[in-house]
Amino acid sequence: MHEYSIACEIFEQVIATAKAHRASEVKSLTLVMGRLTHTNPEQLKFCFEVLAEGSIAEGAEFIVEMLSPSVECECGYQGRAEPPGHPTDQSGEDIGEDRSENGNESGARNRNESGAEAELHQSELLEYVAALNCPTCGKAARITGGQELIIKTIDIETEDES
């Protein structure tokens, strides 16, 4: 359980960035979390909320966008690796594309389903790890993405333009 220390770092970064932009309030923050990290979005949110009490980030909406793993294989395959038939695997066709780059569709969905998404993240880690073999040739592929935890954006409010 290392969510608290990660939440501390997120909190410090958010406050520092917000103050540098003369924010009076942080309305929301958006994180991108790789599915292969051992971080629980719900616990992280709870820790952040506790830390943010009494600060300009108190009550900020905590949004987590989940990012599926990507792999690189010696056969030349580069792209996402997702368990077949997984709900986030929208169609078989775009498997080579990194949807995470725009990440908007999944992000929007996760906004409303963060609880369910957190549970999905936990229960399906094994499924994701098992899917890390190359979808083209079946060999064990090198992980190139899915282990990150990025503070993507914060929405802030400022008193005036000065």
Partner: peptide
């Protein structure tokens, strides 16, 4: 009151 979206782009694990 003005709203701004600030790009942060800070990776917590990359810092480590």
């Amino acid at each position: 009151m003005l709203m701004h979206v600030i790009n942060v782009g800070h990776d917590v694990f990359k810092a480590n």
